[in-house]
């Protein structure tokens, strides 16, 4: 008989939202407070793993249609391309730029190219972590 995981699944549905939010907070905040791409990526991966634990792997795969190997590749590519961005503007490889902009909703906001780099880091970390865990769990 299949065990009844109603409580686990219900809690997960709520918890995942919180964890995702927290991860995004960690990630976005990394520039000025503790956090950043690495830990943000890891906690996102933790949320996804929680989903895998609570639900079936197939079910999660149907809903999150992401190939995590490709995600890793995209992440690394993004990081490298940020570096190339500096080269395009005649600076050294991986020169980061930042500036303050007036945005419609957020008001005056600091935008940095380092954020794109950090996104690459986060994607690579998510991809790798989930990929490893998926590979191992499928090896039955």
């Amino acid at each position: 008989m299949k065990p009844n995981d109603v409580i686990l699944q219900s809690v997960t549905k709520v918890a995942v939202v919180i964890i995702f939010t927290f991860s995004v907070y960690l990630f976005m905040n990394g520039h000025h407070n503790p956090g950043g791409g690495f830990i943000g990526g890891l906690s996102t991966a933790a949320a996804i793993v929680l989903l895998y634990l609570a639900f079936d792997i197939e079910k999660v795969r149907e809903n999150i249609r992401i190939d995590f190997k490709k995600l890793t590749a995209i992440g690394v590519l993004l990081a490298v391309c940020t570096g190339l961005g500096g080269v395009v503007f005649g600076k050294e490889f991986l020169t980061q730029a930042f500036g303050y902009f007036e945005l419609p909703v957020f008001g005056e906001t600091e935008l940095t190219s380092a954020l794109i780099f950090d996104t690459g880091v986060a994607l690579a970390v998510i991809g790798t972590a989930v990929n490893i865990i998926l590979s191992i769990s499928e090896d039955r």
């Binding site: 990394g30 520039h31 000025h32 407070n33 503790p34 956090g35 950043g36 791409g37 690495f38 980061q96 930042f98 500036g99 600091e110 940095t112 380092a114 780099f117 950090d118 880091v121």
Partner: peptide
């Protein structure tokens, strides 16, 4: 670098 988090600024 426009970052208050030194560790992160060093990393990225």
């Amino acid at each position: 670098a426009g970052a208050k988090n030194i560790v992160n600024a060093i990393l990225v």
